[in-house]
Design a protein around this nucleic acid. Sequence first.
DNA 1: ATTTTATATAAACATATGGTTATATACTAA
DNA 2: TTAGTATATAACCATATGTTTATATAAAAT
Lengths: 106, 106
Amino acid sequence: MELDQLTECYKAMADKTRLNILALLRHEELCVCELVEILKMTQPSISQHLRKLKQARLVKERRSSQWIFYSIDGEIYPFIKANIEALPDLSHKIEELKASGGKVCC
Amino acid sequence: MELDQLTECYKAMADKTRLNILALLRHEELCVCELVEILKMTQPSISQHLRKLKQARLVKERRSSQWIFYSIDGEIYPFIKANIEALPDLSHKIEELKASGGKVCC
DNA sequence: ATTTTATATAAACATATGGTTATATACTAA
DNA sequence: TTAGTATATAACCATATGTTTATATAAAAT
């Protein structure tokens, strides 16, 4: 893997919000508004972080009617994937969202 | 591992020069002036990159008379270490330096 | 002691980055 | 067709980052 491409990957991971997003998507695909709800950040901010992750090919998107669901891109290099799997377990955040009726959607 | 600490690690790796440094140190310890020579960059620039890598605990230093030798920190988290081992092989750069008589030192 | 060599630090500057507010687009529902 | 919902993009701003030049420090050599 080339250094330029690697640098882009690590740049994409070099932000706490984006690591949080990756840590959440590790459990299941989520749409933008769910991430907004969980991370308590504005929608444009989340969208721009997702764009960076997408450009670095760490996540992919899937449109379903009004929503766009993001998930970890399966094509990721194995050692990058290992990094994502080493992120903290945030499944409780998703559980909270479901419990509060905020899931699927919005 | 905490997200803040992880973010610092990835920030440290989110730069092409620093990835080059890590890729070189993967093979053997090097002093600042050797890195300057190999990477064709100014000494203060290299020094500041090394400081970031040191702050993120990716590298450690060892003083030997006038020189300060940098190397990969052995205490690194395993999956971070795997990242460094996945970096391109730059041993030829070190060989070139040795061939040109630029090694140990300066 | 003075000079030289190796490295670190500081100051200054240009560019990159992340957040906010406002607006545009895409789809849904009425 | 119009209104509403979900998301993206643009413009703006404050802060962070990387590079350069200049200077400081530390050890070695003379």
